[in-house]
Amino acid sequence: MLKINDVYAKAGDKEILKGLSLEVKPGEVHAIMGPNGAGKSTLGNLLAGMPHVEATQGSVDFLGKDLLDLEPEERAAEGVFLAFQYPVEIPGVNNMYFLRTALNAQRKYRGEEPMDSAQFLRMVKQKIKDMNMRDDLLKRPVNVGFSGGEKKRNEVFQMGVLEPKLAILDETDSGLDIDALKIVSDGVNQLRSSDRSFIIITHYQRLLDHIEPDYVHVLADGKIVKSGTKKLALELEEQGYGWLNQ
């Protein structure tokens, strides 16, 4: 599904990723952990095509396409979804209208018929129920006046509606209390399937108690320095990141 080959990337003027390689197969869940400043968020932003991150070397193959060659909205339509660490507020635009605009833009790119409002309404109502979220989420302007937890829930809800092939969660667990964490991770677990992959960027092991990863990678100083199974996350939790440098 996703093959990152020896990528170097800059965020602004600063080189952040320095020879990162990673392969994600369909249905796999990869957790990316690591100390602050290691380049975790830069990786997510690079894959999503956020403009302030620029690859200087290496390649990223996504389902046979050169991902780095695509515009951010094309990547979205190809199936890349980034759940933002800091979701943005868009005053006056209701969440449902925003999502339908997004979904139909993606469908158009893929040559699919647009979804009319009735179909769309049925679909989102069902999803919001399945994901145990309150449906006032739909009517409110995008993220405006949302609590930290509500914003993160909204990200996962949007993911559910847009049904990406590769979902990247950038510190979705930060700032969540235990109930919100459970709702968010239940949402993610519902979306797990054999043809959908996840990259979960997190600082803490606790999210991985709820979303069980297939692989855990440690990112330090711009590259992956250690990979393993869920056990690695537990070791990190116990020992911190310091021992990696020895």
Partner: peptide, 29 residues
């Protein structure tokens, strides 16, 4: 803001449509 535009782009909405969406929201009242 660039953040608003990026957010829309990441969801698959083109820059042109994103500006129109944001302006539309701004004028809603």
């Amino acid at each position: 803001s660039e953040d608003q535009l990026n957010y829309c782009l990441q969801r698959g909405i083109s820059e042109e449509d994103a500006i129109s969406l944001i302006v539309d929201g701004f004028c809603k009242e």
